[in-house]
Simulated scan of single mutants.
Amino acid sequence: MDELIDQWLDFMRHNRGRSERTIQVYRLALTRLEEFLVEINRDWLAATHDDLLVFTGLWLHRKGLKDPLSRRPMVSAVREFYRWAAVRGLLANSPAAAVPYPRAGRKLPRVMTLASAEKLMWAPEFGSFNGVRDGAILAVLIGCGLRVSGLARLNESSIQREVIDNQPRLVLQVTEKGNKQRRLPVPEQAALLLGIYLEHPELKAIDRLLPDGDQVLFVSIRNRTVGEHEYRGENRRLRRGAVLAMIKKYGKQQGIPEEQLHPHALRHLYGTELREDEIDLVTRQRLMGHADPKTTEIYDHLAMRKVTRDVDRANPLAKIRTPASDLLRQLKANP
């Protein structure tokens, strides 16, 4: 059965273009499904629709996946696996075809505030190579709205130089979910910090060379995985977990609330600020790399500065005299 699972994962990786992160989630899902089928003494190809309903619902819930959103990737893996098995002729029909995705309300994402982002940008020690690297990473995350997976995959060739409005500018070619690519203009502040990082003598001393002649962009500093003689090229690439640990370290030093200390909170800040400045939906969708504009529209609910100014100006209380009107006027006059 392991060989069959590997064949399916290879199919999803190469034919469907699924990312390595998604492949890992799919493998975990089928490992859990195997555990369930052993419990009920059922062969993989003999599983019924009812079996899979129990697995994706009650069984996973009892195993700790109580949030419906956490079970959706499991349902996706089961449906895709059995559909593939049916297409290959291993089954007459897929028993998972009608297994429903769990319903869940859509939560608003947690966003890092501008004040927290400013504190974070000042946290690294720019007198050290580590600090220069971390400052460049934070600037790219905050200024370009990258997913951390996209940041970790950047190579030096991902940085492209163009002339825009008669000025030299940097553009990032980013590869993220489903190996989809997009190009993003780099803010001038981030471009400056990237340039300082790329010219740092300690970076120049690191072997970042890849087999295709490119070079890893953001490097790791501590080696805990390979022999010293292999600590070069792809093995020097900074991993997702290291970025998360870096944000948490600096955030705690700066007293930033725990719920904001995640790379995606920086991405949500980027999306929210685009909305605050009334960037049109199509442009925001392209910059964020969203396949569905409905995903981009969630930032309409997070952008509060402009809507607050609009409400202060247009709400009925602003147009009548109330017991609070004179006091409010005095408070604004003498802050």
Score class of each variant (00 low, 15 high):
Asp67Val: 13
Leu151Gln: 04
Ala303Lys: 08
Glu176Lys: 04
Trp122Thr: 15
Gly135Asn: 02
Asn179His: 15
Lys248Met: 08
Arg329Met: 09
His262Glu: 02
Leu317Cys: 01
Ala123Pro: 06
Gln181Ser: 06
Val174Phe: 03
His200Glu: 11
Asp280Phe: 04
Arg240Lys: 04
Glu34Ser: 12
Arg16Ser: 09
Val226Trp: 08
Gly289Ala: 05
Leu198Arg: 14
Gly213Lys: 03
Arg240Gln: 10
Ser70His: 08
Glu125Thr: 15
Leu30Glu: 11
Cys144Val: 11
Ala245Cys: 01
Thr225Gly: 06
Leu58Lys: 11
Lys306Leu: 13
Ser19Lys: 04
Leu198Cys: 13
Arg71Ala: 03
Arg16Gln: 10
Ser70Thr: 05
Ala265Pro: 01
Met1Lys: 08
Glu125His: 14
Gln189Pro: 14
Phe55Cys: 07
Ala115Asn: 04
Gly289Thr: 00
Arg237Cys: 08
Leu317Ile: 01
Met12Asp: 03
Lys252Asp: 07
Ile279Phe: 12
Thr322Ile: 01
Ile196Pro: 11
Phe36Val: 01
Arg27Gly: 07
Thr296Lys: 05
Gly143Trp: 10
Pro68Leu: 05
Leu141Arg: 07
Glu259Gln: 11
Leu209Gly: 13
Asp51Met: 00
Phe129Cys: 05
Ala139Trp: 10
Ala29Ile: 05
Leu141Val: 04
Glu39His: 00
Cys144Gln: 11
Gly143Ala: 08
Asn93Thr: 15
Asp214Val: 10
Leu198Ile: 04
Glu202Ser: 15
Glu230Ile: 08
Thr296Gln: 07
Ser116Glu: 05
Arg240Leu: 00
Glu199Ser: 14
Gly195Asn: 14
Leu193Met: 09
Tyr26Gln: 13
Gly195Ala: 12
Leu193Ser: 08
Arg83Phe: 10
Arg239Val: 07
Leu69Pro: 12
Asp10Pro: 00
Gly131Asp: 13
Glu156Phe: 11
Pro124Lys: 03
Ala97Ile: 11
